[in-house]
């Protein structure tokens, strides 16, 4: 890891980044409310949730991060950039993520965090001064602006894993770092939700993040880093079935889906998801 990548990681890992993740509990508030955590072992219950949530999120979202990151990296390296082709690939992945996320609460949270990441890139990571930009940066800024416009016109959705792939690809963060950081941030935001839901204290959360969560994030990254979405080129009427079909994104925790969807049914709630 070179110095500029380290510096980027420090910026992206900042919990004060305006990405809207502080209003998302990814179903954890609902999990607690539905009685899945007993008061005697709230810390263990929190770790279990992180474990299961991270497992299903990694398996379902990481292939999208990876594919989008590759699209952006390819576009970024092109001598004569094919922006329409890159956008079409990104939108196809966004459509597929929409069709696979069959839960309106998760969709809502994913879209609001996704577009926030693109805004962060345009407003927070662009060069402050007017004037000549390195051509490579200008090209990436154009890609992000075009995508943001499409989202605003509701021509695409702007889901979180898609936009994370765009952001980290545009910043030149390596795919490996992008994958790891995405899962780390998912886990950290669950623990931070846990602190606000009072299932654990702030010191305990830090301790868990360092000791219990680290092996989980590492294991899930290793498990899912090579998975692809595999579907972007498949035509709808191609009913042929291959082993590849079963190596793509998947949900691994149906209980988590039910609880996350039921978030909006809570009589009172402090999170948006």
């Amino acid at each position: 890891m070179d110095d500029s990548e380290t510096y980027l990681l420090l910026l992206l890992a900042d919990s004060n980044l305006p990405t809207g993740s502080f209003v998302a509990s990814s179903g954890f508030e609902s999990y607690v409310k539905h009685g899945f955590i007993s008061s005697g072992s709230a810390t263990d219950g929190t770790i279990n949730f992180v474990h299961d949530s991270l497992g299903t999120y990694a398996r379902s979202a990481l292939p999208f991060v990876s594919d989008v990151h590759r699209v952006v990296a390819t576009y970024s390296a092109q001598e004569e950039p094919l922006i329409d082709a890159a956008l079409a690939d990104i939108v196809a992945l966004d459509e597929l993520y929409e069709a696979m996320t069959l839960n309106h609460v998760t969709k809502r949270a994913s879209k609001s965090q996704g577009v926030a990441l693109l805004t962060l890139y345009s407003k927070g990571f662009s060069r402050p001064t007017k004037g000549p930009q390195p051509p490579h940066e200008a090209r990436l800024a154009t890609l992000v602006d075009r995508l943001k416009l499409m989202i605003r016109r509701e021509e695409t959705h702007g889901h979180l894993p898609i936009c994370w792939g765009v952001l980290t690809g545009a910043l030149g963060l390596s795919l490996e770092r992008s994958q790891f950081l995405h899962l780390f941030l998912h886990a950290r935001s669950l623990l931070s939700a846990g602190v606000r839901l009072n299932t654990l204290g702030p010191y305990n959360a830090q301790q868990i993040l360092l000791h219990a969560v680290r092996p989980l994030v590492e294991a899930e990254t290793v498990r899912c880093k090579d998975l692809r979405t595999l579907l972007t080129t498949e035509s709808a009427h191609d009913s042929s079935w291959s082993d590849e079909d079963v190596a793509g994104p998947a949900t691994t925790w149906p209980l988590g889906e039910i609880l996350a969807t039921r978030h909006d049914l809570q009589h009172s709630r402090i999170f948006n998801s």
């Binding site: 539905h34 009685g35 609880l259 969807t261």
Partner: peptide, 20 residues
């Protein structure tokens, strides 16, 4: 019509619905 209040243990049956 479902309104979820804090419970101490999971219900016997849970279901969810999302429009697509």
């Amino acid at each position: 019509e479902i309104s979820v209040y804090k419970t101490i243990s999971p219900e016997r049956l849970l279901w969810s619905l999302s429009h697509i």
